[in-house]
Amino acid sequence: MKDVASAAGVALKTVSRVVNGEPGVHPTTAERVRQAIESLGYSRNESARVLRQGRTATIGLVIEDVADPFYSGLNRAVEDVAITHGCLVLSGSSAEEPARERELVLTFCSRRVDGLIVVPAGDDHTYLRSELDAGTPAIFVDRPPGPGIDVDTVLSDNAGGAAAAVGHLLAHGHRRIAFLGDCPSIYTAAERLTGYRAAMGGLIDDRLVAMAAPELVRVRADLDRMLALPDPPTAVFTGNGRLTVTALRALGGRRLALVGFDDFELADLLTPGVTVIAQDPIGLGRVATELLFRRIGGDHGPSEQIQLPVRLIARGSGELPP
């Protein structure tokens, strides 16, 4: 910066004002400073600037699995918002392991990130209390934190979306509707089961409910068992995108009406196209990150619980008659 001041024939403070976009510099002088900056190849040391402000210009992001299209979309949205605030994103995948989640979060905190966005794998987040008390803001996305932790949360309408999926199948004449869900310990899976049960009402048959990890062998065995019943299902509601794809493989051409929770690539190119309840992972990431930067900027208001809507996209598979 001293070299720029010397080349432009101005005071060091004048260069600082131009670089930081502050008023009080004559346009001609400011242009002379900018020309000196360009000719000398000067660039501002962002790390030093934010450290003087007591920040590191980084935020930490913990998701389930970056390979999952849902979370990769969320990740990208977080990065897009963060870059507009001059911040970098440090991210890691928990693989649904609470210990890994905790390790990642505490590692980011040890690097003094300015804030955290967490898709929780576990339900005990008391390890975060000291960081929250120290002023590190945290936003939980897709799932809420465990008991005793009061932080901002951004969720999708999981129960409402599941009820809409089942309602769509009921409207097309189905009464025997199976539900394939993920592990019941996962918040989103439990919420979607709640929505399924609410929509089914007195039509619920627990023999048509199966909840476990989305593995092909398990899903195929569950569907075979259900389809062998004297009164088999005529439709199936799958609780997430991986379960939908796994169920399509397991069905092997057998004809069942199908609605899946989460949209996925090529869903519209199958025959028939797959009817889905579509979440907005980009919206989740954007809303969470904008809220985080509000907190970083000094907003100390009460914690917020934001629920984003989902929407049904009818493509043909959910409209098959019984």
Rank of each mutant, 00 (worst) to 15 (best):
V151E: 12
L180H: 05
R100H: 11
T238R: 07
V15H: 06
C87I: 03
G195F: 05
A48H: 06
R32N: 11
A165K: 00
P23N: 12
A213Y: 13
H172L: 02
L216P: 11
A82F: 03
R242N: 12
D182Y: 11
A267T: 00
Q307H: 09
R315F: 02
S93W: 04
V118D: 02
S72L: 10
A36T: 09
R111G: 10
L132W: 03
D124Y: 06
T84G: 14
G41P: 02
K2E: 04
T84W: 00
R220Q: 13
V287K: 05
T136K: 02
V18L: 11
E290C: 04
V236H: 00
G167H: 00
A165F: 05
A212D: 15
N240P: 09
L270P: 02
I296S: 07
A138Q: 02
A212S: 15
L170N: 04
G241S: 14
V4M: 12
G285E: 10
R192Q: 09
A159W: 04
P322D: 10
V245I: 15
L40D: 03
D142G: 06
M226I: 06
G122L: 08
P230W: 01
Q307F: 05
V81P: 09
T234S: 13
G122N: 08
A314M: 08
N75M: 15
Q305E: 09
R295I: 05
G201V: 06
E131R: 08
T289Y: 08
D222T: 05
A57M: 05
A210E: 11
D150T: 14
D222F: 14
T244W: 01
N240M: 02
I177A: 00
T234R: 02
P309L: 04
G285C: 06
G301S: 13
V118P: 01
N75R: 12
V274S: 00
D268P: 00
T275D: 00
S110H: 14
L251T: 04
P23K: 01
L308P: 01
A30R: 12
P145K: 07
Y187Q: 04
T246M: 05
V15T: 09
V209S: 11
L12R: 12
G195C: 06
G298P: 02
D206C: 13
G92L: 04
P322A: 12
V10W: 00
R76M: 14
P302G: 05
A36R: 05
E31A: 15
G146M: 07
D68P: 01
I63L: 15
E97K: 13
V276W: 02
H125N: 08
P120L: 12
D157Q: 07
G148A: 08
V19E: 10
R286Q: 12
D114Y: 08
A95S: 12
A178M: 06
P145G: 04
L40F: 02
T29S: 11
R294A: 12
G148P: 09
A95I: 07
S94G: 08
G283H: 01
G297S: 08
R249L: 14
P147M: 04
G181T: 08
S94K: 02
S39E: 15
E304K: 15
